[in-house]
Amino acid sequence: MINSFLKTQFIALLVIVLWGCGKSEPIQTDVQKLETIAVGPLFEGVNTATVEFDIQKLLPGEVKKDQLSEVRIKSILIGLSNSEAPVPNSFTVLLASPNTSMKECGFIKEESIKMNNYQVSLAEEQDFLVEILQDNMQTLVIDFDLKEDWFDDLTVTAAIDWELKFKK
């Protein structure tokens, strides 16, 4: 009798533990492409381009963003559509959302830009991403340091490759 009671207890505990440690499943998504216009005139020095998005639109229908359990950025590629625009000295890429703190995701060094490499060097620490992506909406912020004035608008693109996992 006692044995049977203990067995039941053990199974119940096991179920609870397994439920709690539910395995995260990866989500296959396309590379997210964002585009924004930094409205000119843009003067020499630090300028900003921002774009708001909702990560939910990138997720498959059956996955809600609240279920995201692990998030990493695999890569971010920045692009400038106006070829005549002055090449910035540097880029810093940040993410923000209404109910979390803005965080640096990475940056591009002047040396990389000189070699036409607009791949963002990503931050090691990315634990903050889950919270940001679970928020109502997300804002990608790109700060770039222009070498000289540019009196037109500047179209900035970002291609973000996410590594997402969710819990059912």
Binding site: G45, S90, T92, E104, G106, F107, D145
Partner: peptide
Amino acid sequence: PDESLKDVPLKGFRMLKD
């Protein structure tokens, strides 16, 4: 504090947030 961000330029750095 994040070693990987030690080369982020100070010019443009966001000191005030949120």
